[in-house]
Amino acid sequence: MRNWRAKTAAVAVVSALALVTACSSDNEESNGNGGGGGNGGGSDLSGTLTGIGASSQQAAQEAWQAAFNTLHPGVTVNYSPDGSGAGREQFVAGGSDFSGSDAYLTDEEGELQGAIDRCGDGEFVEIPAYVSPVAVIFNLPGIDTLNLQPATIAQIFNQEITNWNDPAIAEDNPDADLPDLAITPVNRSDESGTTENFVEYLATVAPDDWPHEVSGDWPVPGGEAAQGTSGVVGAVEGGEGTIGYADASRAGELGTVAVGVGDTFVEYSPEAAAAVVEASSPVEGRGQYDFAYDIARDTTEAGVYPIVLVSYLLACTTYDDANTAELVRTYLDYVISPEGQQEAAEKAGAAPISDSLREQVQPAIDAIGAAS
C-alpha cells in the first residue's frame, strides 16, 4: 500500500482562474503551433489522436476537444472514457497516443516501469491536468444534502450502517426527515482511479472503519456495481436509498454529502478542493517529467474538501511518428493553458491548475517530439 500520510511541504497545485501568462505566450512562440492561445486560423496541423482513460475526465475532454478543433480544424482528438485502469493498460501496451488516469502510476503492478519501457529512448510524461472534487452522491426524495462524518461514510460503504435513519446519520442531521429505508451502496465495477481516490480517503481518515487496502478495485462485495462514472451516476439516479461516489461534475440533481472536516462539515466545490491540493507534496524519486502528487487527505482545516482526485495525462517525450508527436505536444499544451483550464472549469467544474504548476510541467510538454 502506498504511504498516504499527509506531507507538510506545500505545493501550489491549484489556484483561481489565471489570465494568459508570459509563460504560455512564450511557449506558443517556441512551438509555433498556437496550442496555448493562438487563434488557430492559420493552423496546418492535421491527423487523429487516440486517447483512452479516466471517465472522470470525460466532460473536460469533450470541452478540450471542441475548443482544440476550433483552433486546429484538421485535427481529430478521440478520447474513450473506459476508466483509469484501461487507460494505463493501453498506454503501457502502446494502444493509445496519450491516456488519462485518476491515480499516478506505481511499481506495485509494474505499470510505472511498463510506461517507462513503452517510451523507449524518451522520457515518460505524467502531468496533473484535471483537478476535481469527488462527490458522495445519494438519492433520497426531498433531501438535497446530508452531513456525514468520515467514519459514517466508511461504515455505510462497508455495509455496516444499512438504514438511512441510523442514529449515526440522524445525529448530524437533526432537521432531516430521514426515511426508514435500506441503504444501497453503489460502487464502480471496473478498476477506477476515482475508486482509488475515494478509498484512499476512507483508509486515511477512518482506518478502523475501513480496513481495506487502497487500490482501484472496489474491495467490498455485495453492493450494487456499475461500469464507469456514468454507470454509477445512473444507478444512483435509478434507485431510491442509493448512495455512490463520482466526479463532482457528474453529480447533477442528486443529493450530495457535506463531509466532516475537523469541527465543521464541508460541501464540495472547486475552491474547497483547491485548498487541500495546495497542501500536498510531490512524490519522491520520479522522473524529470513525472509530476505525481500525494494528497493531504486528513486535514482538519475548515473550508477544505478532502475527497479530491488529481487526474493525470500520460504521454512520452518521444514518438516514432513526427506528426503524432506534434499533435500530442500541441494538444497537451492547450489542455494546461489558461484557456484550456478555463474550459474545464466552465464545462466540467474543475479547479484550474496554478500558474506555478503550469510552469513546472511546461518543460515536459515542450520536450515531446519525434525519435531521431
Rank of each mutant, 00 (worst) to 15 (best):
Q159W: 02
G122D: 01
G120P: 08
D177G: 03
R118F: 10
E126I: 04
E171Q: 15
D180P: 01
I169P: 06
S132M: 12
A151I: 08
A129N: 10
I143W: 05
S132A: 14
D121Q: 11
E160Y: 05
F138L: 05
A154I: 13
A176L: 00
C119F: 08
N187I: 03
L178N: 06
D190L: 13
A115H: 05
E123F: 06
V125C: 07
N165M: 09
Q155D: 13
P179Y: 10
A154E: 12
L148K: 07
N158G: 15
D172H: 12
G122R: 02
A135K: 10
T184I: 12
L146Q: 09
D121S: 12
A170L: 05
A129V: 15
A176V: 05
P167V: 11
L140R: 10
T152A: 11
T184C: 00
E160G: 10
N165S: 14
A151E: 15
I153A: 06
N158P: 00
Q159H: 12
V186I: 13
F157L: 15
I153P: 02
S132D: 09
D190M: 01
D190R: 01
I156A: 02
D166S: 13
A182W: 02
E171S: 13
W164H: 10
N173S: 05
L178E: 02
A129H: 11
D190A: 11
L146R: 10
D180Y: 03
P150W: 03
P174T: 04
V134H: 00
I161T: 08
P179R: 04
D144Q: 14
A129K: 01
A129L: 12
E126R: 00
F138Q: 03
I143E: 05
D180N: 15
P141H: 02
L148H: 09
I143G: 04
I143H: 01
L140W: 08
P185R: 03
L140A: 09
E126Q: 14
Q149K: 15
